[in-house]
């Protein structure tokens, strides 16, 4: 996987369904941006305020439970608690690392990161880490990128540039299928299983559902089956050979 090999295939299958309603697209963009922000970095006072303010009711209506403390607890305490949870879940050794490279190869910063960077660049974005240890193939950055692509699509549609809008849609769908589809669902599920705080359980659950719904919308049945398998990554237990152990096997 070479970074400079990333191109949107010209013969990519035409989009299945053209979403004409820019309000829907804009809402999708907002949803991806929201998920990306929640998973990209620790919750800060601004985000907490948003969660308690404009997003409170919509999240409730959606049945998303972020936890009592997020809704009404002492802000400093809840921010500290969520920061600790963020570190344990995504940062500290032993975490469910939110990187495609780690998920697919067991190593940090592998060519998967180059592919993500190339896709961002190709769309006019540059990845820059804020804190050390952040890579371009971070799940949250990918979610945010999809949100940005949706924004561009809306902008193009609103200016009447249907061709450009279709281009942005293709780009988004390709990214969702090829750079996110094979891992982000399984990763979200694993992270959700390990999450202690209801906020991260909820956000990760939402991520899984939102991304999967969009992928189901854009790929055919055969491709969907491949993605299901890729995400599942079933555990493989080795048979223990007691004789081998007994022989000390130096």
């Amino acid at each position: 996987m070479q970074a400079d090999k990333f191109v949107i295939p010209a013969d990519m299958a035409p989009v299945k369904r053209h979403e004409k309603d820019t309000d829907v697209l804009r809402a999708q963009a907002g949803l991806y941006a929201f998920l990306g922000r929640c998973l990209e970095a620790e919750v800060d006072a601004a985000l907490l305020s948003t969660l308690r303010g404009p997003l409170c009711k919509p999240l409730e209506e959606l049945g998303v439970d972020l936890g009592d403390d997020v809704r009404s607890g002492d802000p400093l305490a809840v921010l500290a608690d969520l920061g600790e949870e963020f570190a344990a879940l995504f940062v500290v050794p032993g975490a469910v690392l939110p990187y495609r490279s780690a998920y697919e190869t067991g190593r940090l910063f592998q060519p998967q990161a180059d592919l993500a960077t190339a896709a961002y660049r190709d769309a006019g974005f540059e990845f820059r880490n804020t804190l050390s240890g952040e890579f371009s193939d971070h799940a949250a950055v990918m979610l945010a990128f999809v949100g940005r692509l949706l924004e561009r699509q809306v902008e193009a549609a609103e200016t009447g540039d249907a061709e450009a809008a279709t281009g942005w849609q293709r780009r988004r769908e390709h990214f969702l299928q090829h750079q996110m589809g094979g891992w982000i669902i399984g990763w979200s599920r694993r992270a959700r299983t390990c999450a202690r705080h209801p906020f991260y359980r909820a956000i990760l659950g939402l991520t899984e559902q939102v991304v999967w719904a969009d992928i189901c919308d854009i790929v055919d049945e055969k491709a969907l089956q491949r993605l299901v398998k890729a995400n599942r990554r079933p555990l493989m237990r080795q048979k223990t050979d007691h004789e081998f152990r007994k022989a000390s096997g130096l």
Partner: peptide
């Protein structure tokens, strides 16, 4: 299982054959 899955390292998941 939950800890096994932590991180999702496929090498550890699939290729660590030893348990000692």
């Amino acid at each position: 299982d939950a800890e096994w899955a932590l991180g999702g390292d496929p090498d550890i998941t699939n290729n660590v054959w030893w348990d000692d």
